[in-house]
Design a protein around this nucleic acid. Structure first.
Lengths: 232, 232
DNA sequence: CTATGATTCAAACGAACGTATGAATCATGG
DNA sequence: CCATGATTCATACGTTCGTTTGAATCATAG
């Protein structure tokens, strides 16, 4: 097999790119940084991936393919077990976000580095990246959306979609900046240490997400204009 | 006063930069794009602001100074009215996030363009930007944090800080991508039209945030290892 | 009406960017 | 064990980047 150096080089590039894209973003990372960190020749990226854009896509595909398939497997399993009855909202949320967050401990599948990269990329401005992510997510999103509709028949569908969106935001942000707490202001979570944070982040975030998902529906009181009246 | 052209040029640069940084990010926006959009000479940015970094900081300072002072004014007013008694959580959340979101309608203070820029920048990788934002936010964060501690005396402080963090994430994401709904997957909110979205986004997001903030506390069942038992 | 300082301008700087090239080096199949 | 195709390598290409420069133009004060 003439594949040994090949694969090794490819993987080293992907690892370095994953790390650097996470730290400095796509535009902020140069080919020379990537190949330098990976200890490969500058031309290797173009040889193996064709371009910087293709490299970026491969960085995501390598991790997202498994993640989204796993999400579908989990959902399939839960629906099978439920035998046609609606799932609980907490199950669905855990299937989608829990499956994501549990990646943090799985270094073989990217671990916390990929998690942070993914969190940051959700708000990445580059057009082609967002388009690519939209395509990668399309199938999974549709399935989970339908499951939530079924689980919460009394909640307007538009409301569910919005709240899914808010949950995505809270999650992206939470994983994008594990250190962002002391960035947005220098709060220090009293007890927090590196290991502790991820372990406890999951139940903390899950409580928050479910609380938000099941919150009382908003009142669109009166005229669209101004409308200072807010529920106290 | 030799200030007329001066100020006009400065402002045109700031407006163009605000728009372009929002669309393409800091690294993805070039000086030539900015000066082209502003219809000023390429050298004008360096003449008026010194560097691209300083320009970025000025773009934010122009808007954030007022926003954060307003947040403090609102909090002061509410605390005065309460006369020493704790505020309601919903008041505090509205003071912080509502004041932010109501900027969307205030074109004079940046409107939705600045709002989206701010949302995206929270996960921006560049070190100096995050450092700058941390400094800008420091005072306001501390005051609101203390207000929440007082309003929710039964909730562990660490939990409040985390939930504030989650709220920030949900909000950033919601405003960063008003179009991100059809980006993350191509959902279309049935009724949603441009005007409608922002009007209804506020009560929707507020309900979600409050639901999350007041959710049942997480259970850290069976410490995984390193039994740092903390009250559940 | 001219002198002065502030602003604008066209042009250029060196550095860094993503990419391409062709020769050198490698591992393998015949 | 040599021929072949895959991979690595040093080097260079053409652009674009942020910034600088010095002259031209402007608005005002004396």
């Amino acid at each position: 097999m003439p594949e040994v150096r090949h694969i090794d080089t490819r993987e080293r590039i992907l690892d370095a790119a994953e790390q650097l894209f996470m730290e400095h973003g796509y535009e902020g990372t140069s080919m020379r940084q990537i190949t330098g960190e990976a200890v490969v020749n500058l031309a290797a990226v173009n040889y193996h991936f064709g371009s910087k854009e293709s490299l970026m896509q491969e960085v995501f595909r390598r991790r997202l393919d498994w993640l989204n398939e796993e999400r579908l497997r989990v959902l399939d399993g839960m629906e099978q077990a439920a035998g046609g009855k609606p799932l609980k909202a907490s199950q669905i949320v855990d299937g989608f976000f829990g499956t994501l967050l549990r990646l943090a401990d799985d270094k073989r599948r990217g671990g916390i580095v990929f998690l942070r990269l993914l969190g940051r990329t959700h708000t990445e401005p580059s057009e082609f990246i967002r388009a690519f992510l939209a395509h990668e997510y399309a199938g999974v999103m549709e399935r989970y959306k339908q499951a939530l509709f079924k689980a919460l028949p009394d909640v307007p569908r538009a409301e569910i979609v919005w709240r899914f969106h808010f949950m995505l935001g809270a999650t992206s942000y939470a994983i994008a900046g594990t250190d962002a707490l002391r960035i947005v202001a220098d709060w220090d979570i009293e007890e927090a240490d590196t290991v502790d944070r991820i372990d406890r982040l999951v139940p903390r975030l899950m409580s928050f997400l479910l609380g938000g998902l099941r919150a009382p529906l908003p009142q669109f009181d009166e005229a669209p204009d101004d409308a200072d009246a807010r529920a106290a």
